[in-house]
């Protein structure tokens, strides 16, 4: 089944390479991946939609967690969440069909961005299924071009935990000699393996 995974990552060079490389190396399928900066400019949020059974998704979460630049990973699929996707599309519409197309546009609360003699360029926002549905309804008119952002999602109630900043740091002490405890209280989501 489809899972929506929300990932906070360090916003720097090479992170996307690590994440996408992980998916190809482990043979996981990505349906969509959307990434952008968060309210904290040092952090980006990725929303990944991936398909797999529970075991595969568990591995995806664990392997993502292992990446050094990944701060937090959560599978938000079961959550009460808001998910949105934005699509731009150019559909054939001449004098004869324009009104019919506009009916669909109005039904889906889409926006008309551009009108030409034989096309309309539209913007629609909504859940993935809404965007799919609109696409299907417009298909008979002739879809010229589309572009989709991929799903982005936020949980209504839950917020992804960031580690508190300014934690007492810890040096690279040799394993056996180390008695110091890392005081980081952040718990990566998947370590509760039971």
């Amino acid at each position: 089944m489809k899972h929506t995974i929300s990932v906070l990552v360090e916003n720097h060079f090479g992170v996307l390479n690590h994440v996408s490389g992980l998916f190809s190396a482990r043979g996981f399928n990505i349906d969509s991946l959307a990434v952008g900066e968060t309210e904290d400019p040092t952090v980006s949020r990725m929303t990944i939609v991936a398909t797999g059974d529970d075991r595969i998704v568990e591995q995806i979460l664990k392997q993502l967690n292992k990446l050094i630049d990944v701060i937090t990973v959560e599978d938000v699929t079961g959550d009460d969440m808001i998910d949105r996707e934005l699509m731009l599309l150019k559909v054939s519409a001449d004098q004869a069909t324009r009104n019919d197309v506009m009916q669909v546009v109005n039904t889906f609360r889409a926006k008309v961005l551009n009108v030409s003699p034989d096309t309309l360029t539209l913007e629609v926002t909504g859940s993935e299924s809404k965007v799919d549905a609109m696409l299907e309804l417009l298909r008979p008119f002739g879809i010229r071009e589309t572009v989709r952002t991929g799903v982005i999602a936020l949980s209504r109630n839950r917020e992804l935990k960031m580690p508190p900043s300014g934690i007492a740091a810890e040096g690279p002490v040799r394993k056996s000699a180390s008695k110091k405890t890392a005081s980081s209280s952040r718990k990566k989501a998947v370590s509760k393996a039971d």
């Binding site: 630049d69 580690p163 810890e170 405890t181 890392a182 209280s185």
Partner: peptide
């Protein structure tokens, strides 16, 4: 003198947050 990587916590045991 110190290293801290907020996205890397290699010693889950010692934080007590891993196995119970």
């Amino acid at each position: 003198e110190n290293v801290h990587i907020r996205s890397y916590n290699p010693k889950p045991v010692q934080t007590g947050s891993s196995y119970t």
